[in-house]
Every structure is written in structure tokens, then in C-alpha cells.
């Protein structure tokens, strides 16, 4: 058989790879997750043609919600062009033949690892998170039977103790990623490895947020307009990361989540938006940062 014949053959896999029975099982879990926001619904995760750590949980959730007319965006650390994001995007381009975009505003489904886009999400959008460790209490209590009891009883003293120990040791809460949140005053939830900078974006988001953990076989969800409050203490309120007096070197944005880029051996650095689409859109709209080549040209 020629390569041409091979590539022209009807695909051997179902739309979006998963078989219908698996999708139904995942869809049932998603509905339960939506009905009980922040509660981790067990599901029978399938093997996917990619290694764990590559977002198999998120991929299974995306595969179960994605339709022919959806427009998909995939980000990793805020960028659309990283290896992980590209391989997942290619996977769905091949198995589901959906339209792809890098523009947040154009996407109907966004799969992410680490970041929530800077641009506010809307009601018609679904954000799917790839989650490595869904259990926020796991580092404190390794036994699933015990963590399940804690959630059942809303017994979250341990995690407060952990955060308070942070304060005792560091003078502030040192947790900056996967910073635990309280959902609708009932369940403590791991917001996946997003920086705490993004926690406030989860609160009352207009978009539906779905979380998939492949290895740990858990799905959880936040419907739109759900209360998501970062855990804190009266004398040590929750704060997000801040970069005072910092502007994006490329687009001049302030108050966004920055990546630091080292420029040379002398230790010169610059800060750029972690959200590459946000940054590029701003540049195309004429917002230019001090290290942008167009900016230099304009200044000459």
C-alpha cells in the first residue's frame, strides 16, 4: 500500500479519538462535576496515545465535549507554540478535524496547562484544564480513603495548618502555584498548576471550566458564575503575584502575568507577557513595548 493510500484511508479511530461509550462515561462524569462544583468525580480514564504528563485527562475531557463546529485553542504556559500545546492541537486537528485558533476570543474550547488567558472568557466558551494532581489534600494525606472523608465532612483544618506554617516559616504564604481554593463554600479544590495570579479569574468566570486528571482519574468542574475563593487568613489575606513598575518589553502591557527572559550573560533581562496571544494581539493593535523592534524604529 502506498503512503497516499494510507493517508487517504478513512481514519481507524472515532471522531476525537475516543469511542462513543468512553465519551458517554466521561460526559456523565462531567455532568456530575457541574452539579457538584469542586467535587472530584472518579472516572474510568482511558489510555491515550500520549504519555501521562502530556495532559491525557484534559485531552479526554476535550474529546468528550468537542464538536465539529468548535474552534479549539490549546495553550501551555500561556503560549500556543510550545511542544505540548502543538502536539495536542495536532492530535485534535487529525482526529476531529476541528478549526484551530490561537486567538482567545475566537475559541469555543480552550485546553490549557498552567494559565488562564488574560482576555476575559465569555459564556459560550469552555476552558479545559490538564490536571496532574487533582487532590489538594494529597501532600498532607496520602490515603485516598482519608482525603475523601475530609471532603465528605468539609474537614479542611489540615490545609489551613499547612498554609499557616508557610506564614510562620516565610512570613507569608509561600504557595504560588496550585494555590487551593474554596468552591461555593463547600469543597476545597486544586486549581491545577496554574499560578495563583490566575485564581481570581476562576471566580465567577463567565465560561464553563472543566478539569481532567488522567493518571488520577478525576474530573471536576466549575459552572459559570461560581464562587471560587482562594484560602487565606484574616491577618494574611490572599494576594496575587505582582511585578511593580514592570511593562511587557514587547507590548507594553502592565498588570499581566510575566515571563522573565534572560537576554545575555551579563544578566540583562526583560519581562514579556506569558500569554502570547494577548501580547501579539496588543502589538498588532499598535501597543509596543520598549524592546519591540517596531518601537525602536518609531523612536528613531
Amino acid at each position: 500500500m502506498s503512503l497516499d493510500q494510507l493517508t487517504n484511508e478513512a481514519p481507524a479511530y472515532n471522531f476525537a479519538y475516543l469511542d462513543e461509550q468512553t465519551k458517554r462515561m466521561i460526559r456523565r462524569a462531567i455532568l456530575k462535576g457541574i452539579a457538584v462544583p469542586g467535587y472530584q468525580v472518579p472516572f474510568a480514564a482511558r489510555e491515550m496515545p500520549m504519555p501521562y504528563g502530556w495532559g491525557t485527562g484534559g485531552v479526554q475531557v476535550t474529546a468528550s465535549v468537542l464538536g465539529e463546529s468548535d474552534i479549539l485553542k490549546v495553550i501551555d504556559q500561556g503560549a500556543d507554540d510550545t511542544t505540548n500545546a502543538v502536539s495536542i492541537r495536532n492530535f485534535f486537528a487529525k482526529t476531529a478535524n476541528v478549526d484551530l485558533t490561537t486567538h482567545t476570543s475566537e475559541a469555543t474550547v480552550i485546553q490549557t496547562r498552567h494559565r488562564i488567558p488574560e482576555e476575559e472568557l465569555q459564556e459560550h466558551q469552555t476552558l479545559v484544564y490538564q490536571v496532574p494532581i487533582p487532590e489538594p489534600l494529597r501532600f498532607l494525606e496520602p490515603r485516598e480513603t482519608e482525603t475523601r472523608k475530609m471532603h465528605a465532612l468539609s474537614e479542611y483544618g489540615l490545609i489551613h495548618v499547612k498554609l499557616y506554617e508557610d506564614i510562620a516559616t516565610h512570613g507569608h504564604i509561600a504557595t504560588t502555584y496550585a494555590y487551593p481554593v474554596m468552591v461555593e463554600g463547600r469543597y476545597v479544590m486544586d486549581p491545577s498548576p496554574t499560578p495563583k495570579f490566575d485564581n481570581p479569574k476562576m471566580h465567577k468566570s463567565k465560561a464553563l471550566q472543566l478539569f481532567g486528571a488522567g493518571r488520577e482519574k478525576r474530573i471536576y468542574a466549575l459552572p459559570p458564575h461560581t464562587d471560587v475563593v482562594s484560602l487565606d487568613f484574616e491577618d494574611h489575606p490572599f494576594t496575587i503575584q505582582e511585578w511593580p513598575d514592570t511593562k511587557c518589553a514587547m507590548c507594553g502591557a502592565e498588570g499581566v502575568y510575566f515571563d522573565e527572559v534572560i537576554l545575555d550573560d551579563a544578566g540583562n533581562n526583560m519581562f514579556v507577557c506569558s500569554d502570547s496571544d494577548y501580547c501579539e494581539t496588543r502589538q498588532s493593535e499598535g501597543h509596543l513595548g520598549p524592546l519591540n523592534a517596531d518601537y525602536k524604529e518609531r523612536m528613531q
Binding site: N14, F15, E20, K23, R24, R27, I30, L31, I34, A35, S64, V65, L66, G67, E68, E123, L208, A221, P223, P224
Partner: peptide, 19 residues
């Protein structure tokens, strides 16, 4: 069309449950 009609129907049910 099992695949696509299931997906479209699920999407409506999911949105209804989410709102």
C-alpha cells in the same frame, strides 16, 4: 449520526446543567 448527534445533544444538556 451517533457521534455528532450525541455530541450536539450532550452539549445542550451540559450547558443546561451549567446554567
Amino acid at each position: 449520526d451517533l457521534t455528532h448527534q450525541s455530541q450536539q445533544s450532550f452539549k445542550a444538556i451540559m450547558d443546561a446543567m451549567a446554567q
